[in-house]
């Protein structure tokens, strides 16, 4: 597996198409956390997120093995996009939210509704990750959307602008406010992030 670490995604996909299971294992290890975090930020439940992660990679396996993969050079955004789609489907199945309209794969976040955060979640004893998750989930929808796309799908601001049908400047502006709002929340809820984050 060590030798595979230096191989780029596109090459690994081609190797996997030819039957190299280690290539797939490398892709999975490389992208599991970002995909899983993106799902978890939406569905909030760890076990549901794990189920959806499995579904995500089953789709990936079937697509690649079926010769239908055509996302040359953009493997990670593709993975996270599938994960988001499945998270949306999950909400539809659960009927927690009204039907979400999607024109195409790139605009899938436009009407996405996230689960409400419970009051109990705000507890001082929460782990650092829980706190950050909480701060991200409290962001206004459009800001959270850009943040997830930029951090977990590794999409450029230009790609985000296209996917959300706004200008690049608007996408940048939303990202700026997302970061400012997280900073405000960290200060408001008394997290000593300079100590915890070892800045």
């Amino acid at each position: 597996m060590e030798n595979y670490k230096k191989i780029d995604d596109s090459t690994l996909v081609k190797m996997y198409q030819k039957g190299d299971e280690s290539a797939f294992e490398q892709l999975l290890q490389r992208h599991k956390s970002k995909a899983f975090t993106a799902i978890l930020l939406i569905v909030k439940d760890y076990y549901t997120a794990e189920d959806l992660l499995q579904e995500t990679f089953i789709k990936i396996i079937q697509t690649i093995k079926g010769g239908k993969y055509n996302e040359e050079g953009k493997f990670q955004p593709w993975v996270v996009r599938i994960a988001h789609n499945l998270a949306i489907d999950y909400f539809r199945r659960e009927k927690r939210y009204p039907v979400i309209m999607m024109e195409d794969g790139t605009s899938l976040f436009n009407n996405l509704k996230f689960a409400e955060e419970s009051v109990e979640s705000l507890q001082v004893r929460e782990e650092l990750h829980s706190q950050l998750k909480f701060f991200i989930q409290r962001l206004p929808e459009k800001q959270r959307e850009v943040l997830i796309m930029r951090h977990y799908a590794d999409m450029s601001f230009q790609e985000i602008a296209k996917a959300t049908d706004v200008s690049v400047n608007t996408a940048l502006g939303r990202m700026r406010y997302a970061l400012i709002n997280i900073k405000k929340q960290i200060h408001k809820y008394g997290l000593n992030y300079e100590k915890k984050f070892q800045i």
Binding site: S33, E50, L147, R176, L179, K183
Partner: peptide, 17 residues
């Protein structure tokens, strides 16, 4: 300030079992 926040967000990654 924002660069620091970004750095912290980059560290926020959860791993499945």
């Amino acid at each position: 300030e924002l660069k620091n926040i970004k750095k912290q967000l980059d560290r926020y990654l959860k791993t499945p079992s």
